[in-house]
């Protein structure tokens, strides 16, 4: 009997079994969401079946119309695209500066920035509200975007600084000798090598901004500027929640971000492969 082969096979089986269980536990809530979105309100509570007895596709149309998703969808796309872009743009520049440049109070400012990660958003609602009011940015898209951008910066800078610290200085020195400017090194060398970290940050920030709801409700008043998550609110009553419509709404709201995730996942893998050669 080939024991090493048997051992490998048992080990692979156990690994796959665990992975299947983990995958199922991840997929099940999504499956439950889609399944519940096709049920009736009564069925959600009375029958614990995996599949609906009658498939109510009309729930999707009702949810889309009732939640005004058409209006909110474009707002969310706008906030996500612009917000993520500026988080990446500012954080790559800042992180590179923290990693490579020498300036007064560098460590102090870096740790001060990192310390902001410890502050929960609800804890700053009141000062934020006052600040935006004083800047005449309350109930404006700019005000909300600035909140989203500042919210994402600390972690992005922290992650990217670590990444830039790891880059071999020799590559940059060679570029300097070849006449490349400091910005050129950042743009042509550091940035491409940081692709895996940037891809991760794009996904994380896109997810955060797309799913964000609290800040938008506090900062904005005009419904026309609200993001997609605001639409889901209409299904959650004070005492009664319309679960089928809420689940249909959630499914609609989830689809774009799942597409972004799947698309970016490919880039992360590419980036990791590229990153493996950086040393």
């Amino acid at each position: 009997m080939d024991f090493p082969k048997l051992k490998r096979s048992i080990s692979a089986t156990i690994t796959h079994f665990i992975l299947i269980i983990v995958s199922l536990s991840c997929v099940f809530p999504v499956f439950w969401m889609v399944s519940s979105s096709l049920k009736t309100q009564e069925e959600v509570f009375s029958k614990m079946s995996l599949l609906p007895s009658t498939w109510n596709w009309s729930n999707y149309v009702t949810a889309f119309v009732k939640a005004d998703f058409g209006q909110y969808f474009l707002n969310s796309v706008f906030y996500t695209v612009v917000g993520v872009f500026f988080v990446i743009f500012i954080s790559t520049l800042a992180a590179y500066a923290f990693a490579r440049l020498e300036f007064f109070g560098k460590s102090f400012f870096f740790y001060l920035l990192i310390a902001t990660l410890l502050i929960p958003i609800p804890g700053v609602f009141v000062p934020l509200f006052l600040l935006l009011k004083n800047l005449s940015l309350l109930d404006t898209r700019t005000g909300l975007l600035l909140c989203y951008i500042s919210n994402g910066l600390a972690f992005a800078i922290f992650l990217l600084k670590g990444f830039f610290d790891e880059l071999p200085k020799e590559v940059e020195e060679a570029a300097l000798i070849d006449g490349c400017s400091r910005f050129g090194i950042y743009y042509r060398i550091a940035l491409p090598l940081a692709k895996p970290a940037i891809a991760t940050l794009v996904i994380m920030n896109a997810l955060t901004i797309w799913n964000e709801f609290l800040l938008a409700l506090v900062v904005l008043q005009d419904k026309a500027k609200m993001p997609i998550q605001r639409g889901l609110m209409v299904f959650q009553g004070t005492f009664v929640t319309d679960y089928p419509l809420l689940m249909a709404g959630l499914t609609i709201a989830t689809i774009p971000i799942v597409i972004v995730y799947l698309y970016m996942q490919k880039h992360i893998i590419k980036g990791i492969a590229a990153g493996a050669l950086k040393g």
Binding site: F78, V82, S136, T140, R141, Q221
Partner: peptide, 12 residues
């Protein structure tokens, strides 16, 4: 441009 276009729209 997208960002600054949002700046131009003051609170209604």
């Amino acid at each position: 441009a997208l960002f600054f276009s949002s700046c131009s729209k003051e609170a209604v």
